[in-house]
Design a binder for these strands. Sequence first.
DNA 1: CCGACAAATGAACTGATGTTCATATATGAT
DNA 2: ATCATATATGAACATCAGTTCATTTGTCGG
Lengths: 112, 112
Amino acid sequence: MAGKYMTHGTKVPEHPLSCVGEDELSDLAELFKMFADSTRIKILYDLTGGEKNVTEICEDLEMNQSAISHQLKLLKTAKLIGCRRSGKQMIYFLADDHVKTILAMGKEHIEE
Amino acid sequence: MAGKYMTHGTKVPEHPLSCVGEDELSDLAELFKMFADSTRIKILYDLTGGEKNVTEICEDLEMNQSAISHQLKLLKTAKLIGCRRSGKQMIYFLADDHVKTILAMGKEHIEE
DNA sequence: CCGACAAATGAACTGATGTTCATATATGAT
DNA sequence: ATCATATATGAACATCAGTTCATTTGTCGG
C-alpha cells in the first residue's frame, strides 16, 4: 500500500514518515507524556490496586492535595483514568486495562 | 510476598506503593520521557524502516542537523538507539525490537 | 443557612526541555 | 597539510510543565 504510482507504473518514492500522520504522532507523544512523570506513574500504579479517592492517593504518595488534583486532571483529560462522585469524595480509577499493559511493557524493557 | 509479619503473625499493612521501588518508577518515567516528544518519536519511526545516517534523518524530518543530533544523543543515552561510524557518516539504528513494540502499543491505545 | 470536610482551580514561581546559532571535532579526498 | 563534508557540542534563549499557595466550589451534617 505504500507509494503512489506514476503514469507508467514507476513508483514514486514516498516520504519515509508519511505512513504515520503528523496528528497521530502528536497524539502518541501526548499519550506517552502522561507516563513521563514520576507523580503520574505513581498515581497510575496506585490505582492498579483498585479505585481510590483523592485523599487516599495523597497519603499513598505523600504529596499535597493540590499537586495530586492537578495531575489527576491531566490523566483524566488523557482518558487514562475516570472518576465518580461518592458523597463528598471523588473516586478515581483506571480507565481500562490498557494502562496496566503499557506500564508492564515499560517495566519489562527496563529489566532487560 | 507482600507485607511483613509482626511477632505474632499479624500482617503489617504495607505501603501501597512499596511493591515498586522509587528508583524503578523514576527509570520508568525516564523511559517514557523519550517517547514523549514528537521529534524523538519521528526519529524512532524513521529508524523503523532501517538504519539511517544523520543527514537522512534530518531530511526525513525536515529539521536542522543540530536539533536532530541533540535528540539522537538523548535517545542513545536511553539506549533506545545505537550507532556505528561508516566513513564520515554516523549510522543510527533502533537498539532492539522493544522500541517497535512500545510504539505499536501506544498506537493501539490511541485507536481505541 | 452555616460550618466542616473533600476536591478543584488559578496565579505565581521554578526548574526542565527543545531549538537555534556558532563553533569544534572527526573523517576522507586532493 | 588543507579543504570539504558529516556530525557533535555548548551556550543562550524561549517555552513548557510541576509544585505551591491561596481561594473557590461542592457536598454533607446539624
